[in-house]
Amino acid sequence: MARVLHLTDLHFGFHREALIAPLLERIAALRPDLVVVGGDITHRALPVQMRKARAFLDRIEAPVICMPGNHDVPLWNPLARFFWPFAGFRRHFGPVLTPVARAGEVRVMALNSTDPYAWQRGKIRDGEIGRLIGNVDPLGTNIVALHHPLQHLPRVTKVPARRASEALYRLEASGVHVILSGHLHRWAVDALLATGRHPRLLQIQTGTALCARVSDMRNEFVVIDVDGPALTLERHVAPMESRDFDAPEIARYSRASGVWRRV
C-alpha cells in the first residue's frame, strides 16, 4: 500500500498561523510516503512568503514535490511576471516545475498549469499531455497533480484551464487513474464522479490547507491510501473557528470493475 498526502493552497502571507503546528503534527502522525503540494504555496510570491513556506516544507519529514499555482508568480512586478515568472519559485521550491515521484506502486506526475499572463485561468502547455502519457506506468496507479482543476461543477464561476477537456479525455484513455487539484478552495470528489463524464478518472479537488479567507469556512487536506485498485480517502478538516483538525472523514473507492465506484 502507498500513502500520498495532498496539500494545496497554503497561501503563506495570508495564512492561519495558529494552524501551522497542528498541521505539521497531523502530517507527522500520518507518516505519508509522499507529500504533494499543489500550488498557491504563497499568497503574493514575495520572497518573505516563499522563505516562510520553505521553512514549513522543510519540517515535513516525508519526500515532498511541489508545483506552482497562479499566486506563486509575481503580481506587482510586471517585468518579472512576463520574463522570469517562475524564478522565485525555482529558487525556493526546486528547479523542476513538473516533478515526477514514486511511492510504492504509485507514480505521481506534476503538471504546471499556471499561466503567468492570465491572473486566474490556467493552461495546459503544448507537449505536456504527451509528456504525462509517456510517463504512465502500465502496471501501477498513476496520479496527475496540478493546481487548476480540469473539470468544473456547475456552481463554479471560474473558467477551466485552456485545453482542460482535451487533457481529461487523453489522460483517461492513457491509463491515468487519479487527478489531484486545488485552486477553487472547494472540496469535490463524488459530485464530479456523479457527472459520469470521466468514470475512469477519480478527480480529487482539495480545499485550502491554510488560507485565512473566512468565506472558505474550513481548511483541509487529504490522505490517499492506494492498495491496487482500491483507494481510501481521509479528508482532514479544520473549521475556521477551530485551531485543530477534526477526526478524518473516510471514503473508499474501487476501480476493480474498470471504472471508479464508491464502496
Rank of each mutant, 00 (worst) to 15 (best):
C66F: 06
R218H: 08
W187I: 01
P74Q: 11
I143H: 00
R163Y: 03
R197F: 12
H15C: 03
P47S: 07
V4H: 05
W76Y: 15
K123R: 15
A230Y: 06
L34V: 04
A145P: 03
L192M: 12
V144S: 03
V106Y: 00
R16I: 14
A118F: 12
A101T: 05
V96S: 10
G134D: 11
P85F: 07
R252A: 15
I143Q: 04
V178K: 00
H183K: 06
P199H: 06
E166K: 05
R131I: 10
R131S: 10
F86M: 10
L57Y: 08
H43A: 09
V263S: 12
I60N: 04
A145F: 10
Q151S: 11
T206V: 09
S181H: 11
P199D: 04
L202S: 00
V237R: 11
F12Q: 04
I179T: 00
T42D: 05
V156R: 14
P160W: 00
A103V: 14
A62C: 10
R243F: 13
R131K: 15
D190R: 12
R186W: 01
L75C: 08
D58H: 08
G228Q: 11
F14I: 09
E61S: 15
Y117K: 13
A18F: 15
F93V: 01
Q203R: 07
V189K: 12
A110E: 03
L111F: 04
R262Y: 08
G69N: 04
G94L: 09
P99T: 08
A53L: 08
L171A: 04
S254R: 09
G196Q: 08
G182Y: 02
E249D: 09
A18I: 06
L19S: 02
H147G: 07
K123Q: 13
V222K: 02
L34C: 07
G104A: 13
R255Q: 06
A188Y: 05
